[in-house]
Design a protein around this nucleic acid. Sequence first.
DNA 1: CAGTGGTCTAGACCACCGT
DNA 2: CGGTGGTCTAGACCACTGC
Lengths: 260, 260
Amino acid sequence: MAETETARQSNAAAFDSLEVALDRGSPIPLYYQLAQQLESAIEHGALAPGNLLGNEVDIAARLGLSRPTVRQAIQSLVDKGLLVRRRGIGTQVVHSQVRRSLELSSLYDDLAAAGQNPATRVLRNEIESASPEVAAALGIPEGRDVIVLERLRSTYGEPVAHLCNYLPASLLDLDTERLEETGLYRMMRAAGITLHSAHQTVGARCATADEGILLDEPEGAALLTMCRTAYDDTGRAVEYGTHVYRAARYTFDFQLLVRP
Amino acid sequence: MAETETARQSNAAAFDSLEVALDRGSPIPLYYQLAQQLESAIEHGALAPGNLLGNEVDIAARLGLSRPTVRQAIQSLVDKGLLVRRRGIGTQVVHSQVRRSLELSSLYDDLAAAGQNPATRVLRNEIESASPEVAAALGIPEGRDVIVLERLRSTYGEPVAHLCNYLPASLLDLDTERLEETGLYRMMRAAGITLHSAHQTVGARCATADEGILLDEPEGAALLTMCRTAYDDTGRAVEYGTHVYRAARYTFDFQLLVRP
DNA sequence: CAGTGGTCTAGACCACCGT
DNA sequence: CGGTGGTCTAGACCACTGC
């Protein structure tokens, strides 16, 4: 009995002793401030896996917030997979392993994944008429001008991937120099293009002779391929790309959350 | 001016003429009923891409709901990528292409993707001591009993993938016959295990001689590999698997949503 | 300026869980 | 049974957009 008491106390204390500082003058929404502080508490271990959070009504009262606001904060962490709610039980911090790279595989993966020492060489940056394949992927008329971008990405001086991308020429100007320093998506974002969604297909095949030379692999080596179309806020296709990765130096790594 | 009027009308009419039937007696939440009917209206084309939804206050009034309830319904569709909200503008249906297989790549992919005519042959279904690799992946002590499952999945009589899975032996019993008829995840779900998240790594490599025989590919052919650990509600690892796919017959296909 | 979504409040009742 | 999250209401003010 005493043990149960202690256990429960340690659970409750975990959150009770947590100091949450809300700034009502800040333009940052209250629910977001709370969510951020909870998240960092979980990351720093102040809230340990399995800990109960205490009921929402109490939290709201303690912080001087309404219950819906507290719920909104908690819900955002549930959506991220950090918390689990159970009816009649309470809200718990999810156990250990799950929360490493919890972000869903993002469009910036290429950059982040190679983020140790990435370098890009632009092999080609021209305007061309859209081929049938490209026109279909981008949903534009055949023959329309598109930017054709061909890049070789390396880390530590060793080639990792060959990237070939197509963008409607009307969208933006691509400066080759800046492209070698930053990623394509960063430049698109800077140009006011807000990405909304993308469709990807990942497969494998053997290297052709040319690819072998470019990527420093023997002909017939296994390569990882990725084909992607990215869409705008409004649903317009804004980018189509076919990427080829050296299997020995690259893998796709991602986290899946099961929708309840 | 008249044209503007017509355009606005056609946008507004799209939703206004939509019949939404809410059943307050149903155990299904009102926001969920509304979300479902909006979603099917979008799928059936009753709500066309780019259509404005009309403001939330009006919708709430027309349906006899409160605004937060309507917001909850709309928000769930925004999260799915079907709708886009813009401050000061309104809520729009996302343009065309984006909404085909909008569900995020799920754990049931193997089954669904091969869902045309899938067959499974169980090559092995035994209990074994966990190897260091398996123990580390599942977060259990080395030597603990685990179920080792080896399966060959085919479609139309042709092999597609070789699946090797490990599960803590304490979790459930796996009947070989049922495994040949249904998927592993379905059986786990039926046993009361609720999946929460998973971590996957996708790569490529060349086939070994043994794999070539099993999968009916020449030695050295490109294969797609996938390595996955799946976690419980509580964060316990409940499954670890290494899968090998014939590159010519399988690709990973998924949709990404960019978090705002 | 008027209209939109974004945020927030202070209540309420219900369904589910453990005891 | 009491406690929990799940849902719902009827307001309110603000920030941003377009005119």
